[in-house]
Design a protein around this nucleic acid. Structure first.
Length: 567
RNA sequence: UGGGGGAUCGUCUAGCGGUAGGACGCCAGCCUUUGGAGCUGGCUACCUAGGUUCGAUUCCUAGUCCCCCAGCCA
């Protein structure tokens, strides 16, 4: 398979390094990257940035390839369910690892051998301090650490102890294997980091073959080296692990020496990205599972109606750099709108129905009116929608006492019904007890039918509608920001969930949508004209459709209204 | 107060000694049978102070501020 490399749309400091390395013949001119998630949670949009970067770079280079590797060195939190989900998400995003799917757990035996090499070189030792003691010996940010009393164990004793650790002779926490580097290093990562810890826990892939597991700092660089990774791209917090990364590949004398490069992770306003917080939301049932459309998980975004194209365009637009950055949610929304505007068929849906009767329209008459499916795409064609005497319009499109600049329906006013007629409101029916408006009485002008003689007449507004007798029932779920505050601005001593937006989900159970939608497949995106982009939810049933609002349309009136009513 | 990083429009991001550019956002207007889309115009930035230089966002010096690190997590 020799697909031509894709030209990079824009460059960044990492692509510059890769290009320079390639030009200089470093790594034999090869470019091999990897995306190395730990299968202990679901992927989110921050991972998407990393996926787009790693696969993007590989795809741009002749012969370049990106591996998918499960960094599964901690059996206590990992699960095959996540492995499955991660693969689905990466594929859904549009990337292909071909046959390069790997597991760090497949390297356990080789990793063990590397550890033995280190011990034999006098560069690793078995320590028997408790976790607490080890912490005290480590020193602090400003004070050097002290050597463990076990630091001087003989190579023979270390070899023996390490073998017995593997054999299962010791309980959890009684011994660890540590690198022997420098307890006085100003870089705390170099103060004899732990390489192996005992955990009598079954691993989801290796079962009970092992009762000790390598740490990230040991397994990661070696996994990269084993796979021949050339550029090991990770986030900023690993920057001061790089000397350790280099030490491990150097001292283990691996034939290949990958190079670690760090970039700033993605933050997005009004949402959370940390695994801990996401898990918190799911476990405390503050959201409805990992695919809750309010979550920035890829599963959540997919269910919400975000497309892979939009996500990739977003990841490209945000760039790659080293400074901490928080991208505005509006940028993400911009890219879904841009994508869906080109592709989503237009349909009409009424979210909060208000009954409207056209007094001079013949009772029992039904017309099939022609409507354009997508003004941005002529090939999408047209469809027929039924029109009759009794309709529903959205409550928002009528005001008994319209404010300035409100162009829609009001007593005595006329508006166009999209693809239909111009109507005039001649009466308002109210519930005698509550005063609530229950029905609008209108007349229509038969000459103003769409495409007809008077159709060109200018009116201030066009509103959407559905025919009451023909409409299909639907539940529509509206979403807003998960948080009211940017997580970065929440004080650390505060429970961040206090800042959750109580209106992040609003269910509208009694919506009416046009009949053509009756058999829409879950996952399909449409535009509800004048309202927003929506995606059919898997909860949909034949006579009870469910839609998720992906994003609103830009709304000039909402902005005006907000400006007019100072709080 | 140790070490590692980073500071450019409101937000991301470009710049590699020679007029500070792009995207989102915002504002104004045009257009419109979606107050959508589209189009036009506009808005706002080099952390500070010195120095080198004909010329500094870029190089040097000294500060300031922000982020990360004291897991047997990754």
């Amino acid at each position: 398979m020799s697909t031509a490399p894709e030209p990079p749309v824009r460059s960044d400091f990492i692509r510059e390094i890769v290009a320079a390395d390639r030009a200089a013949g470093k790594h034999g001119g090869r470019v091999v990257t990897r995306f190395p998630p730990e299968p202990n949670g679901y992927l989110h949009i921050g991972h998407a940035k990393s996926i787009c970067l790693n696969f993007g770079i590989a795809n741009e280079q002749p012969g370049g390839i990106c591996h998918l590797r499960m960094d599964d060195t901690n059996p206590t939190t990992e699960d095959p369910e996540y492995v499955q989900a991660i693969q689905e998400d990466v594929r859904w995003l549009g990337f292909d690892w071909r046959d390069k799917m790997f597991f760090a757990s497949d390297y356990f035996e080789r990793l063990y051998d590397f550890a033995v090499v280190l011990i034999k070189k006098g560069l690793a030792y078995v320590d028997s301090l408790t976790a607490d003691e080890m912490r005290r010996y480590r020193g602090t940010l400003t004070e050097p650490g002290q050597p463990s009393p076990h630091r001087t164990r003989s190579i023979e004793e270390n070899l023996d102890l390490f073998r017995r650790m593997r054999a299962g002779e010791f309980a959890d926490g009684t011994h660890v294997l540590r690198a022997k580097i420098d307890m006085a290093s100003p870089n705390i990562n170099l103060r004899d980091p732990v390489l192996y810890r005992i955990r009598h826990v079954a691993h989801y892939r290796t079962g009970t073959s092992w009762c000790m597991y390598p740490s990230y700092d040991f397994a990661h660089p070696l996994s990269d080296a084993i796979e021949g990774i050339t550029h090991s791209i990770c986030t900023l917090e690993f920057e001061d692990h790089r000397p350790l990364y280099d030490w491990v590949v150097e001292q283990c004398e691996t034939p290949r020496r990958p190079q670690q490069i760090e970039f700033a992770r993605l933050n997005v306003t009004f949402t959370v990205m940390s695994k801990r917080k996401l898990l918190d939301l799911v476990e405390r049932k503050l959201v409805n599972g990992w695919d809750d459309p309010r979550l920035p998980t890829l599963k959540g975004l997919r269910r919400r109606g975000f497309t892979p194209e939009a996500l990739r365009a977003f990841c490209e637009a945000i760039g790659v750099a080293k400074r901490d950055a928080t991208v505005e949610m509006q940028l993400l929304e911009h890219f879904v709108r841009e994508d869906l505007n080109k592709r989503a068929p237009r349909v009409m849906a009424v979210l909060r129905p208000l009954r409207l009767v056209i007094e001079n329209y013949p009772d029992g008459q039904v017309e099939q009116l022609e409507a354009v499916n997508n003004p941005e795409d002529a090939s999408a064609g047209t469809r027929r929608i039924p029109f009759s005497r009794v309709l529903y319009i959205d409550q928002e499109d009528f005001k008994e006492d319209p404010p300035k600049q409100f162009f829609r329906l009001a007593p005595g006013r006329e508006v166009r019904l999209r693809y239909a007629y111009i109507i005039t409101c001649i009466g308002v029916v109210k519930d005698p007890n509550t005063g609530e408006i229950t029905e609008l009485r209108c007349t229509y002008d038969p000459e103003t039918k769409s495409g007809g003689a008077q159709a060109q007449r200018k009116v201030k507004a066009t509103i959407h509608w559905v025919s009451a007798a023909h409409a299909v029932d639907a539940e529509i779920r509206l979403y807003e920001n998960l948080l009211l505050t940017d997580p970065a601005k929440i004080p650390a001593d505060q429970d961040w969930t206090q800042h959750l937006n109580p209106r992040s989900l609003e269910r509208l159970p009694s919506c009416k949508v046009e009949p053509g939608l009756a058999s829409i497949a879950p996952g399909t995106s449409v535009q509800f004209e004048r309202v927003g982009y929506f995606c059919a939810d898997p909860d949909s049933k034949p006579n009870q459709l469910v839609f998720n609002r992906t994003v609103t349309l830009k709304d000039a009136w909402a902005k005006l209204e907000k400006a007019q009513t100072p709080r």
